[in-house]
């Protein structure tokens, strides 16, 4: 039982990280029908930004964190204004190819401009393990789970309870109708790209002490989050979260109870099963065919 709870904590703390990146996929898909294959790089770049501010320039943690989020937001804004807006009329395939290209550019650009090495990042929280009877867990995992949950709840409230959130939902449900209601869909799309980048930036700060900082970490996180979004449901924010947790828990439990050798394979099998049985994802909603 103690073992099970420990695995649960480990799985959830990874899963929620995948989930928060996956939410970005869902937000973009819903509002602009774009799939951003540069999603992982939107995590990688803020990681380096955080290293630049916090480690190289030795700015204290919280100001660095805020500046990183600000930088992420600006990156998302430029990403939408300079690239997505021009390509959006070309359809999803054009966007996919363009974002793939951008991700390669950012990845190898970072490798050449900065370093191919993995960079150190300190723990954000105490590393002294907490023991509760047989259960031993690390405060870092708990803090990650709690803080990311808070961020997701705030995001959820913004979307469900504010006017702008309503407008986002409106755009997600029907762009045409939203336009006819006078909603400025272009503003909403820009806003969602900024929001997505900020979320990814947040994930970056929490992921950095766990993964360290490396130019190609984006592929790993991007793929995990993409798979999570598909497993959970690409058209539902809670789907992304469910998907992220499913991936995190599946990895951990498969590794613990079956074998560690094929932990990634189990996730892919899970993906296949979901695609065969419920292609819209665990909590996704079927989209009407156009």
């Amino acid at each position: 039982m103690a073992n099970f709870i420990q695995l649960l904590i480990g799985g959830v703390s990874m899963g929620i990280l995948y989930g928060v990146v996956a939410i970005g996929f869902v937000l973009l898909w819903q509002t602009s029908q774009t799939i951003n294959f540069g999603q992982g790089e939107l995590v990688m770049v803020p990681m380096f930004l955080m290293v630049a501010l916090h480690i190289v320039l030795k700015i204290p943690f919280w100001p660095s964190f805020v500046l990183t989020l600000l930088g992420s937001g600006i990156m998302g804004y430029l990403f939408e204004r300079l690239m997505i807006r021009k390509l959006l009329p070309g359809g999803v395939l054009v966007i996919v190819i363009a974002t793939l290209g951008l991700s390669g550019f950012l990845r190898y650009g970072m490798q050449i401009a900065w370093t191919p090495q993995t960079l150190f990042f300190p723990h954000l929280f105490s590393t002294k393990p907490i023991e509760l009877g047989d259960i031993i867990f690390s405060p870092e995992d708990i803090w990650n789970i709690v803080l990311i949950s808070v961020i997701i709840i705030v995001l959820h409230l913004c979307i469900k309870r504010t006017k702008l959130g309503m407008a986002m939902q409106a755009v997600a449900q029907s762009r045409e109708t939203a336009e006819l209601m006078g909603i400025n869909v272009r503003h909403i799309i820009t806003l969602v790209f900024v929001l997505n980048s900020v979320l990814a930036g947040t994930a970056a700060v929490f992921a950095a002490p766990i993964f360290f900082v490396r130019y190609d970490i984006g592929i790993f996180l991007g793929v995990k989050a993409f798979v999570a979004a598909i497993i959970g449901g690409f058209n539902q924010i809670r789907g992304a979260l469910v998907g992220g947790l499913t991936v995190g828990l599946a990895e951990t439990f498969a590794a613990a109870y079956i074998t560690t050798a094929y932990r990634d394979a189990f996730v892919m099998i899970l993906l296949l099963v979901v695609l065969l049985i419920k292609p819209e994802g665990i909590v996704g909603i079927k989209e009407e065919a156009y």
Binding site: K163, M166, A167, A170, E176
Partner: peptide
């Protein structure tokens, strides 16, 4: 043209929101 996954009332309010306030003010108001 409706937002089928929203309530009747939400639909009504959405139809008027962009006529009021700025992007930022709408982020904080209901």
């Amino acid at each position: 043209q409706l937002f089928l996954e929203m309530t009747v009332f939400e639909n009504m309010l959405l139809s008027v929101q962009e006529h009021r306030g700025t992007l930022l003010s709408r982020l904080f108001t209901k």
